[in-house]
């Protein structure tokens, strides 16, 4: 059961404090737990830290890993930089899109999965690579990638 955003924020404030310099930690906590950062969380953080709502939103919108739109409970980030592209990233992306029926940055209707592309994830020596919920998967083939994603909860 997902916790409500205010609860997560309150938890985060207890853990990190409410100083402005804790904002990234608070946002990361919400983002990791819910896969995205709802308005209610932004408002709760603004209230707790004394930063204006617009400023909190501004920070959220700056960082690629944060999202103000709902995302799936599993997030696949496929590297889109050259070493991975040269080793077949486009076929992997196509295979994933075909199998799961979503475009990049799209989310499946059942809320299970979001697929994103992302710049270099530092796994070029084992390209092509992706992060699935933060865990690295390397030397992918279209079949291997689909199998990994299929196995997600």
């Amino acid at each position: 059961m997902l916790r409500n955003p205010e609860e997560i924020v309150a938890d985060g404030i207890r853990e990190f404090g409410n100083g402005r310099e804790r904002l990234m930690q608070l946002l990361t906590k919400v983002n990791e737990e819910l896969s995205w950062i709802p308005t209610t969380a932004i408002e709760a953080i603004a209230k707790a830290t004394g930063i204006s709502v617009a400023e909190v939103y501004s920070v959220v919108s700056f960082y690629s890993f944060f999202s103000t739109e709902p995302r799936g409970r599993n997030i696949v980030r496929l590297c889109s930089t050259i070493s991975c592209v040269m080793t077949g990233q486009d076929e992997i992306l196509k295979a994933l899109m075909d199998e799961f029926g979503i475009e990049p940055f799209g989310t499946t209707d059942d809320g299970r999965l979001t697929i994103e592309t992302t710049p270099c994830i530092g796994l070029c020596d084992q390209a092509p690579a992706m992060l699935v919920n933060g865990e690295p998967h390397v030397k992918l083939t279209p079949e291997k990638a689909c199998e990994i994603v299929r196995g997600l909860g």
Partner: peptide, 22 residues
């Protein structure tokens, strides 16, 4: 941790990020 922004490798951007800013 950062959150997906290459620019934060620039040291003052990194500091801004640590301070809770873009």
């Amino acid at each position: 941790t950062g959150s997906g922004a290459y620019i934060c490798g620039e040291e003052t951007a990194l500091i801004e990020s640590l301070e809770g800013r873009s």
